[in-house]
Amino acid sequence: MKQLIMKPLGDSALLIQFGERIGEDVNAKVQAAASYLDQHPFTGYVECIPSFTTLTVYYDLLKLGRPPGSGTASEYVCSIVTGLLQDMESISFSARKIVEIPVCYGGEYGPDLAYVAEINGRSEQDVVKIHTGQEFLIYALGFAPGFPYLGGVPESIAAPRKKTPRLSIPAGSVGIAGTQTGIYPLQTPGGWQIIGRTPLAIFQPEHHPPVLLESGQMIRFKSISSDEYDRLAGERK
């Protein structure tokens, strides 16, 4: 835990940078620090939000209860967080949970699978094979509730965004944009190339946690038939 850069984000948050570049090792430190702070909250701690290389720690200025003469609140929180992270024992890089995401590729659920295959000079089966052939690290959740920011898609199935975004993309749609892939948690407009759909609920506001995936986990897509999709979707109801 050396050389962390800590900068105030206004008067009620502190941003901690764990590295310069996006990488699995830097993100592992971010995730470890996030869960450590959630488990060992200091007085006045509100929450923290992990991202690719940074962790933002939010606090309540009125509840910090800092001793007089301890400088600014952000300096005080800096020193507390530094202390806490030093207490944090060695960071585990292993034992990432792998979550399998069943996806029905192509057809009505994946209207752009043919396009993604065509611009890459491959068959649709190849695209599915490549998409299901690796694990993706969830670097962060953001953009929409439970939306996973995933590690790189191989160039061999990359595809540009649609020039005109669709007005409505169903929840559970799996898309590709450039070398990014992701799952739409909500029905929203969107410009990603949609290659399939999962019957799983990514955002489940009535559950705790309210999202299926958590940052720091790995996901692996698995190809399923439309019958299987219907069966799994039926189980949800």
Binding site: E47, L141, G142, F143, P145, P210
Partner: peptide, 10 residues
């Protein structure tokens, strides 16, 4: 809503 930012919830 406090404490749900890590899930991408505003």
């Amino acid at each position: 809503r406090k404490g749900y930012g890590k899930f991408g919830i505003s």
